[in-house]
Simulated assay, not measured.
Amino acid sequence: MSAMFEELDYAPTPIGAVSLRRRHILSLGTDVYEILLGEEHLMSSLFTASEVALADLGLAALDGGKLDILVGGLGLGYTAEAVLAHQTVATLTVVDLLEPVIRWHREGLVPMKTALADDPRCQLVQGDFFALAGSTEGFDAQEPERQFDAILIDIDHTPDRLLHGGSAGFYTTSGLTKIQRFLKPGGVVGLWSDEAPEAAITDLLKTAFADAWAEPVIFANPLQDGREFTQSVYLGRKAGP
């Protein structure tokens, strides 16, 4: 059995100290990896259903192959890993504000080791997703104004519970409309949420996109005798050609 607790790394960032830790849960007989920002839990390897669903639902809404996908927020990498599991994906760009998080993937400190960093389709980019979304050039310094088939975002807890103030103007009709400059016709934007679907958020997306809908993601919590929790993925589609 591994050690009961280990802090794998701790580093300052522009929005506070971030840490990666591993805990062994005796009742489950497994190791759990967690990312914390200060004392706030950002992600756990024990709960990944909705992160995976963000990728699967986003790509299910697309037709064709040789897809170019952008993910905002790296974390432990489960959304990115699920994107790369689709053979229709040609390229994946992952943008994360926190340099230590990207380094953990390059050094193999996370559960999937260096799988993302080693995949030739995947590029890990350190940057402010929301600042890039509001910029003229967009997300690819080598190809300004590059467009993607899907932009999948897992950064804030919900569009109403923000990780930090940098995203405040994004969850508006203006912000959601503006990011579509970097989306191919018929492409989709996906938003992860820690809570069950809310009509107000879907209605907001409908003010910016040609079509918008919410998908509930239901999973059992093994730490609470299988009690079910509901999170959600919101999707908005840009008008087609």
Rank of each mutant, 00 (worst) to 15 (best):
Tyr171Cys: 07
Tyr10Arg: 15
Ser167Met: 01
Leu191Pro: 05
Glu81Cys: 05
Ile102Thr: 11
Glu40Ile: 07
Leu36Val: 00
Arg22Leu: 13
Gly16Ile: 04
Pro197Val: 03
Tyr78Gly: 05
Gln126Cys: 13
Gly127Arg: 02
Thr13Asn: 02
Phe219Lys: 04
Leu116Ile: 13
Thr136Pro: 01
Phe129Ile: 10
Val83Phe: 10
Ala82Cys: 09
Phe170Arg: 03
Phe148Asn: 07
Arg237Trp: 02
Asp140Ser: 14
Gly138His: 04
Thr207Arg: 09
Thr79Ala: 12
His41Thr: 11
Leu76Lys: 05
Pro159His: 08
Arg106Pro: 00
Asp225Tyr: 14
Gly72Arg: 02
Pro144Trp: 06
Asp160Leu: 14
Ala131Glu: 15
Phe219Asn: 05
Ala220Tyr: 10
Glu228Ile: 07
Glu143Asn: 12
Glu39Gly: 10
Gly72Val: 08
Leu76Ala: 06
Phe182Gly: 02
Leu37Tyr: 09
Val217Phe: 03
Arg22Ile: 12
Thr207Asn: 01
Tyr33Glu: 09
Lys178Asp: 14
Ala117Asn: 11
Glu81Trp: 08
Ala61Arg: 11
Pro222Leu: 08
Pro185Phe: 13
Gly138Gln: 13
Leu46Tyr: 12
Ile35Asn: 00
Asn221Met: 13
Leu8Tyr: 05
Gly108Met: 14
Gly127Asp: 05
Lys206Asn: 03
Phe229Gly: 04
Ala239His: 10
Phe229Asn: 06
Arg161Glu: 14
Leu116Gly: 10
Lys113Val: 12
Val83Pro: 07
Ala212Tyr: 00
Val101Arg: 00
Pro100Leu: 02
